[in-house]
Structures are given as structure tokens and as C-alpha cells.
Design a protein around this nucleic acid. Structure first.
Lengths: 138, 138
DNA sequence: TCAAAACACTTGCAAATTGCAAGTGAAAAT
DNA sequence: ATTTTCACTTGCAATTTGCAAGTGTTTTGA
């Protein structure tokens, strides 16, 4: 059981104690926007995270109740990671990261997705939260 | 001039290359919600960041165009750091961090601030963006 | 049925980053 | 003139990262 130290009682600081890590948020991105759920799928991302870092971050996220680990339905040797409701609640944060990155950094993004997030943010947040929930049940 | 390496062309990943750091976001928090603008003020936060880390992160934020450094109006030995519009645009992200932290972690927050952020998020985002802009002119 | 492949990690280690304490140098106050 | 304030810098031990290789179960396929 991974234990994180809380630096203060500030909500921002405490949120950052777990979410203030590049790899953690890329895992959440892959779950929300790419529907990924296994160790092998997370390793295939463009950012090439190291295997030990991935294992460590999955353990942190599980111990923090942001995702659940379970044996896959089809294979006993496979695990699936699913978002809890606490994990689903990071969707608005991830969407703000998309919007900031797309506006201020040189990046590549599907223009339709960007338009959807910009023009109907509240609806898009609900849509991706629900998608994340549906995947968690699958 | 600090150079950051971009891990991919994904907007989330690229945003995280600069914002995916606990100390960077605490500096932005202090500017937006506490109106801080000097090296000495940042050092006084509850999280006690080390002096060398603070100097490093301020240099990163300046080189990324998120804040500007200028000699203070009153004293030549003092610098003031102010948010650029790129920095002001992190306000929605910071507000999502507040909401997630307050909802899912044991933290302490003024109930009126929380209610304001929860019940009228869009208006609150605009309000704090404008406050941040006004401080940048002061 | 038995060897090979897939899958999810673990381990070892060099290199980079962090956190702490102390030091530096210029301007302000006394 | 001297002390204090302010904004850093430096040195160094300890932690964390990133890379490559290895381990131990399933599962697939001949």
C-alpha cells in the first residue's frame, strides 16, 4: 500500500500530492480518451513510459482509490484497470489540460474534438464522464 | 533559458511537460488565490518549498511565457512576478484542482469559496481570471 | 503435451532531480 | 558605516528516474 505524504491541508496542494505527476495524468488520459485498461495498452502510448514507473503509478492510483484492479473477464493472466467515481471526477481537470495545451502549445488535436470541448464544455465533460463510467462497467 | 523536452504532440502531454509539476502549480495557486508576486512571498507557503526549487521553477515559468519578471516599482532589489495571459489561462485548471481536492481528499477550505466554485463555476472562473489580470497590471 | 509466446511485472544500476543547509552579493534601512 | 533584507547560488546526501534485462505465471499453437 503506497502512502503519499500530504504537504498541507490546502485542497490544491493535496490534489497535487497525487495528481501532480505527469505519468499519473497520462494514465488517466489513456483511460478516459483512449479507453485503455491494461498494463500492456498503457505501455504503448507515444510517451513511452518505463515499465517500473507504470507499475508504481498504477499502484499509487489504486491505493488512492482512483482506479480498481481486477482479473480480466477473458484471461486469468490479464488485469483490467477501471476508473472509480473518484477517477471519473478527474475528467473536468483533464479537459482543462487539453484546452490549455491546445491553445498555448504546439500540439496536434482533432479539430472536431477541440471544437466540442471549447463550444460545449459542460456537455462534453458530462459525455466523457459517462463514457468513462460505461467503460468501468464493461 | 530553460528548455523543456516535449514528449509527444498530444495537448495533454505537452501541457503536462510544464504544468505537471507540484511546485509549478503551487506557485500559480499563490499568484491567483493569494495575490503573491515575490520570491519571498512564495517561500512562505505552508508547503515550504526549497529555495533552489523555487528559483528553478520561476525560471521555467518565465521561459515558458507563463509569467513575467520585473524590477519592483518601490525597490530596485526586489522583483515582481506577474502572470501573462497564458498564465491567466491556467485559472480554470487550478479551479478544477480545488474542486477535486475538496471533494475527494481531507482538506480545509472556506465553505463560501467552495460554494462559489461549485454553484457558479463559469462566473467564478471569469472572476478569478480577471482578478489575476488586474494584479498583473498593478 | 509440451515448447513458445504473451503478459505483467521486478530487479539492478547509472544518471538526473530533490531537499536541506549554508553561503553570496547587491540594495535598503538604521 | 553597519546591519538587515532580499533574491538567489552552491555543495552534497538522499531519493527518484529511465533504461535494459530478467522473472514467473498463463495461454496459445504444433
Amino acid at each position: 500500500m503506497k502512502v503519499l505524504k500530504q504537504r498541507s491541508t490546502c485542497p490544491i496542494s493535496t490534489a497535487l500530492d497525487v495528481l501532480g505527476d505527469k505519468w499519473v495524468l497520462l494514465i488517466l488520459r489513456d483511460m478516459v480518451f483512449a479507453g485503455k485498461s491494461t498494463y500492456g495498452q498503457f505501455l504503448q502510448s507515444a510517451e513511452k513510459m518505463a515499465t517500473n514507473i507504470l507499475a508504481d503509478r498504477l499502484a499509487v492510483l489504486e491505493s488512492q482509490g482512483i482506479l480498481n484492479k481486477a482479473v480480466a473477464a477473458d484471461k486469468k493472466s490479464k488485469f483490467t484497470y477501471r476508473l472509480t467515481e473518484k477517477g471519473v471526477d478527474t475528467v473536468p481537470l483533464i479537459i482543462e489540460l487539453v484546452l490549455w495545451g491546445a491553445k498555448h502549445c504546439p500540439t496536434i488535436i482533432d479539430p472536431r474534438l477541440l471544437a466540442e470541448l471549447q463550444d460545449e464544455k459542460a456537455a462534453a465533460v458530462e459525455k466523457y464522464k459517462q463514457l468513462a463510467r460505461d467503460m468501468a462497467r464493461a
